[in-house]
């Protein structure tokens, strides 16, 4: 079957089989940031935006995205660059394999809720596993980004 997806703002038309996963589709179309960690919708690594809503691309068929827009970290470099340096300053990037999914969901969180509490951050990102960092450095990084943004606004 032929599908057309707005992938990071550009229309992509391709032939797919009915069981092609959105994860495999976006990786095959240049979006290598999207990682597979578990295949069972349990780790958050494959998070992409489907019409601006975060979804787990390992559990969405490519065919379902036909006619919709899909955004990956490749399409959000500027928005991500605003805050990921704060994660780097904590050394919380570590192996980095979970970073794209974590960054995508953090962008979604901050779009939904520009001034979250620590509990809101933990709760929103609970589905994003990280085996390296112990999460605390990611939280400190987001917090220091928010603080610096507030200081900048004053």
């Amino acid at each position: 079957m032929t599908i057309t997806i707005q992938l990071n703002g550009r229309p992509v038309t391709a032939e797919v089989s009915p069981d092609t996963l959105l994860l495999d589709f976006v990786r095959a179309h240049g979006c290598a940031s999207v990682k597979c960690g578990c295949e069972t919708a349990g780790c958050g690594l494959c998070t992409v935006f489907l019409d601006d809503v975060p979804v787990l691309s390992c559990s969405v068929l490519a065919a379902r995205a036909d006619g919709h827009s899909v955004t990956t970290l490749e399409g959000l470099q500027d928005e991500a660059a605003e805050f990921v340096g704060f994660i780097a300053d904590q050394g919380a990037d570590q192996c980095g394999f979970c970073n794209p999914g974590f960054v995508m969901n953090t962008i979604a969180l901050l779009r939904d809720n520009p001034d979250p509490t620590d509990e809101e951050i933990r709760s929103y990102l609970a589905g994003n596993l990280c085996r390296c960092s112990g999460y605390e450095g990611q939280l400190r990084g987001i917090r220091s980004f928010l603080n610096s943004r507030k200081e900048g606004a004053q």
């Binding site: 290598a32 999207v34 990956t72 300053d89 990037d93 960054v103």
Partner: peptide, 21 residues
């Protein structure tokens, strides 16, 4: 000193650096 990892920004911005990439 707590310097950033040399590969930090590549990793955080999802650059293709792992085996399957």
């Amino acid at each position: 000193h707590s310097l950033r990892k040399k590969d930090a920004m590549s990793l955080l911005l999802g650059k293709p650096v792992y085996l399957d990439d």
